[in-house]
């Protein structure tokens, strides 16, 4: 089966890869590019562990073909922190103990970042509905929601400075 050559941008860096037609973006990230931060929990778009941002929209990388990435710009969990400077969402997840096993965490981090990129001051309800596509079985969501709301507050304060 003929492989497709794809040129794309991942976490700000130009990347080229070859992929088979049925390979998802998640397959490519994990198995071809060694970016294993995005997790595979269901392969059906129901758990959100593979969430990435594609041209500004968050998507499940398990529901996008690798070949579709041609010319797009993708942000994965590996691209959320700037060097050794954690994103406020990451910092607040740590401070609020918003993770237990940590497997769903990359998807939540990306989804929360996408939320705060779009909405600087989300309510608890908006946050919960935005994150409804990210399953967490450990935390009961309480500390995750608190972490995201706190990160939003920090980002608002930083923006006001």
């Amino acid at each position: 089966m003929a492989k497709t050559h794809v040129s794309t941008i991942i976490n700000g860096e130009p990347v080229e890869f070859l992929c088979e037609p049925q390979q998802t973006l998640l397959d490519v990230l994990r198995d071809e590019l060694g970016l294993t931060g995005s997790k595979e929990g269901c392969s059906s778009g129901d758990c959100g562990a593979c969430t990435v941002i594609c041209d500004g929209n968050m998507v499940c990388s398990c529901l996008m073909l690798g070949a579709e990435a041609e010319g797009r710009s993708i942000t994965t969990v590996e691209g959320v922190a700037q060097g050794d400077h954690l994103h406020p969402v990451q910092q607040k997840f740590l401070e609020h103990a918003a993770l237990q096993c940590g497997f769903c965490t990359p998807g939540f981090i990306v989804a929360a970042k996408a939320l705060l990129d779009e909405n600087k001051n989300p309510t608890e309800e908006e946050t919960r509905y935005w994150l409804a596509g990210n399953l967490c079985r450990c935390t009961g969501y309480d500390k995750i929601v608190r972490a995201v709301l706190d990160a939003a507050a920090v980002m608002r304060a930083e923006a006001a400075e």
Partner: peptide, 21 residues
């Protein structure tokens, strides 16, 4: 007290290696 967990940064940055990684 409530310190930040030692394996936390790995888990919020995608570095932590799980079974399939």
């Amino acid at each position: 007290t409530r310190p930040i967990r030692p394996d936390g940064v790995d888990k919020v940055t995608g570095r932590a290696n799980f079974g399939a990684d």
